[in-house]
Design a binder for these strands. Structure first.
Lengths: 213, 213
DNA sequence: ACCTGAACACCGTTCAAGT
DNA sequence: ACCTGAACACCGTTCAAGT
């Protein structure tokens, strides 16, 4: 299950002084290359050329360290330029840009899986969306539901995509029939750029302000 | 020094003989009460009144044990009765029934998070769906995409729902503004029965065979 | 055949001590 | 103030030995 991740022969010979920033930075470097789940305090300490407990001067515990890493990951999210008043185009743009972040930095998904995201960017994303939707005739309540639907679809899709992509899934090999031959369906079709866009557009075209009915 | 035997609550005093079935059964009992992630071979062995290595006679390793548990979890999924030819009603029914399973047995989500599910039930679910959709004018390819969209939405939603529900999320408390006061939006609204159904129906009404356009 | 003891290579974390 | 050593309570797993 777990391979040898850190080259334990200590590299970083303590040139830089230890600090919260240095620790989080090292954790980020690791997490970008590997995974949030395999990050260990001991491995991190070794990489920094220090005993595990040295870290505890700067972070209360592993959970706090993980939260710090997650914050850093979330800071990478940027809102696309807002142009025009086509709310469907806007919702599609933010959904696509969020997914692109997830594809490029799969570890960012863990940030969303850990709990609700309430960073400034996340809030501005919601606020701008609600603005456009209410302008289009949605009630505020409907607007939030519509936004939530798109957001959940995007994060949910990306979450499943990540597990299917990641590290040579054993079940694909173990189960002899990953395809339904009669239909020429591969389970891999379930997650792809096309499939994401297909579902997203279906969802978007199904969203309409009740007033317009 | 190391003779400190941790006092596990060794209940089961080895009345039953050990077997693969007994082990998986015990793992299921644990997993229903606790979580798939906290299951340990050592704990399980202790619960069975046996040393950890006794298990290795019946399961190759922890991963194989986990797979066995997952299979058992998936066996709980039942297809709803198929009545009529309304494909939207059918897709909503299988989505709702799948989510209900997830709500009642949150641990079943891990089964889907571990990788693609290709059990007989999962395949029959897909096949029946494709049948109805093609009858309604979808091409086989479209039918699979439509099914996949609904399936991914359901599993994705449930995954996020589980992390938000579970064990008193710290971020809710840590982040002072979990609500956008101006909008009276709580992040909790994002996952609810209503929200699930709202998004599902939007998605369903957005799905149409291209031939009908 | 079925299980155990001892060990190895890990984890997160605490506490007292060293500089 | 900043870090270390030793320890505690865990992990999954292997290998040789006991019955």
């Amino acid at each position: 299950v777990s391979e040898a991740i850190w080259e334990y022969p200590v590299r970083m010979r303590r040139s830089e002084p230890l600090s919260r920033e240095v620790i989080v930075h090292a954790a980020m470097a690791y997490v970008d290359e590997h995974d949030l789940g395999t990050l260990s305090t001991r491995g991190l300490a070794a990489q920094l050329g220090v005993t595990p407990m040295a870290l505890y001067r700067y972070v209360r515990n592993k959970d706090e360290l993980l939260d710090a890493v997650v914050e850093e990951l979330l800071a990478r999210i940027r809102l696309p330029r807002r142009s025009g008043t086509d709310w469907r185009r806007w919702l599609e743009a933010i959904a696509q840009s969020l997914r692109r972040l997830f594809v490029e930095h799969p570890v960012a998904i863990s940030a969303f899986a850990r709990g609700p995201v309430t960073t400034p960017t996340a809030r501005r994303r919601l606020e701008q969306s609600v603005e456009m939707l209410t302008a289009a005739g949605f009630t505020p309540d409907e607007a939030v539901k519509a936004y939530a639907a798109v957001h959940t679809y995007t994060v949910g899709f990306s979450t499943l995509e990540a597990t299917r992509r990641s590290n040579a899934n054993p079940r694909d090999l173990a189960v002899p029939v990953a395809e339904l031959d009669s239909l020429h369906v591969s389970i891999h079709q379930f997650v792809s750029d096309d499939q994401f866009t297909y579902g997203l557009r279906a969802l978007l075209s199904g969203l309409t302000p009740s007033a317009s009915v």
